[in-house]
Write a protein that binds this DNA or RNA. Structure first.
Length: 468
RNA sequence: GGCGUGGUGCCCAAGUUGGUCUAAGGGAGUGGUUUGCAAAACCAUCAUUCGCCGGUUCGAAUCCGACCCACGCCUCCA
């Protein structure tokens, strides 16, 4: 069986066949670094992380590039509002983004290309397009891509260019382009751009938004690569335009599989900056929602399904993570000497997980396989049937699954100062009281620690504690 | 107006190239086991039903038609 992905451009699931056996080249659209990303943005990035991790689980060597847009209307406007340089602004949010990636336990991409580091290459590609006759220049020094020159335009988004005119905001556009749907490759300098400008064959200016991805993907992955991802809002116009530019400039096929993730909703409405209904990762961590609950919530609804965000979902997510974690620590602590191994269950779970995930990352099916194994494993431990070898094999399998899920070892991201020595001494006092059957005292100590957010768990191996 | 997605138990959600669905899995609830208590775990229970109506079929959550509802894209946006 092979992996199948839903390809946006053909609107159907297709067997995944990488260009080079065993290797996958993927380009994933990253953030525009003018502000903190919200968890709707992270839904997409974490989907990309899941995809990346699953491809690795299936043995592929993945080469991923995620771009950071550090020059565009938003970054320029924000830096001027704050009266700081563009670099000062974007450096701040690049750092915040990388910190968030770590908090959410996303695997680092091989490359995080930044738009401003590729200006000369962008100018080259635009010149190339100009030479080939796909562009025109306007009096203000801007260069536009003439979509009329590219017959396939609209194929990715399934839009007919001839019918797109009506809804356009032609009047709003301050550039003097010929066709309403043409898009900027290069934007001539305007006063609002402040000191953000580069020299080019067309005069001072800055790149259009779409050209950076065409250039950086080509530079890092070549003109033709396997997978390109982003949120569904990138399909049009961004990816459509990228596709047009790349194909026209390089003559190559560009991308084989386009994968797009659906929106994160709040009260059934798209989470977005403009509706002001967004939460940043920091907002949630500050409210003590652990990072692993956020990751789990974002990862466990199929990526092409809209996901309605709510606090109760975070709480459910946390419980599911806990169930998996409890199972894992029970396995590690297991000292039973039963006769039963776990070979059959492991094989079934592995097959079920893999075949579900092979089907366009059907995470629900994958989780069902895992939790069925968890229930079986718990029971066989309770009944003492499980052998030490069986427990060990289960540990290995759970770790293997966690390479995909990435939640077992996550830090919760709570900035709580914990005095471990103090808690340990309280536990010692309590156990002394328990040994003396002085349960009044032992319960008082438990309550005292609960008030501090510390939970005690009595196990055969002694008393353990954890936060919250 | 054009294009598209989704409506499954109390909540989330898989299944949607028809029969193995007498509908996975997670959460909540209820009863029980275990436990000094607590937590976790385990067992049992929890949709004759898949937005609504009609049709095709021996058989439909899955196919066809109509309808209702929600959301999205066509404009910066993950």
């Amino acid at each position: 069986m092979s992996i199948r992905f839903y390809n946006t451009i053909t609107r159907q699931k297709e067997a995944f066949q990488p260009l080079e056996t065993g290797k996958v080249k993927m380009y994933t659209c990253g953030p525009t670094v003018y502000d903190y990303a919200h968890i709707g943005n992270y839904r997409t990035f974490i989907f990309e992380d899941l995809l990346r991790r699953y491809l690795e689980f299936r043995g592929f060597d993945v080469n991923q590039a995620m771009n950071l847009t550090d020059v565009d209307d938003n970054t320029i406007r924000r830096s001027r509002e704050r009266d700081i340089s563009l670099t000062e602004l974007t450096d701040e949010f690049k750092a915040a983004f990388h910190a968030d990636l770590k908090t959410l336990n996303m695997q680092a991409a091989q490359n995080y290309p930044e738009a401003t580091n590729f200006i000369p290459q962008m100018i080259n590609m635009i010149s190339d397009l100009e030479t080939k006759g796909y562009t025109y220049t306007t009096p203000d020094g801007s260069v536009f891509f003439n979509i009329g020159k590219y017959e396939q335009y609209g194929k990715l988004a399934n839009l007919n260019p001839d019918e797109m005119l009506s809804g356009g905001r032609v009047a709003d556009d301050s550039y003097e382009k010929e066709g309403a749907r043409d898009f900027a490759l290069w934007k001539g300098y305007k006063a609002e751009d402040g000191d953000v400008q580069w020299e080019s064959p067309w005069g001072k200016g800055r790149p259009g938004w779409h050209i950076e991805c065409s250039v950086m993907s080509t530079e890092l992955l070549g003109p033709h690569f396997d997978i390109h991802c982003g949120g569904v809002d990138n399909i049009f116009p961004h990816h459509e335009n990228e596709l047009a530019q790349s194909v026209c400039a390089t003559g190559a096929d560009f991308v084989n599989y386009w994968l797009h993730s659906e929106y994160l909703l709040v009260d059934n409405k798209k989470m977005s900056k403009s509706l002001n209904n967004f939460y940043t990762l920091r907002d949630l961590l500050d409210q003590d929602y652990p990072a692993e609950a956020i990751r789990w919530m974002l990862i466990t609804t199929h990526y092409r399904q809209k996901l309605n965000f709510s606090v109760s979902r975070l709480e459910e997510a946390q419980k599911a993570v806990n169930r998996l974690r409890e199972f894992y620590s029970k396995l590690k602590a297991y000292d039973g000497s039963g006769e039963e191994d776990a070979e059959d269950q492991i094989r079934v779970a592995d097959e079920q997980f893999t075949s579900a995930m092979d089907d366009d990352l059907n995470i629900s099916g994958g989780l069902a396989a895992i939790f069925e194994l968890v229930r079986w494993g718990n029971r066989s431990m309770v009944e003492g049937r499980l052998s030490a070898t069986g427990a060990n094999d289960l540990i290995i399998l759970i770790r293997k699954f966690d390479h995909v899920l990435g939640v077992l070892d996550m830090e919760s991201g709570l900035n709580v100062e914990i005095d471990a020595d103090f808690i340990e001494s309280k536990i010692a006092d309590r156990n002394e009281a328990r040994a003396n059957k002085d349960f009044t005292t032992s319960d008082a100590i438990r309550d005292e620690l609960v008030a501090l957010g510390v939970e005690l768990i009595d196990t055969p191996e002694g008393t353990k504690w954890k936060m919250k």
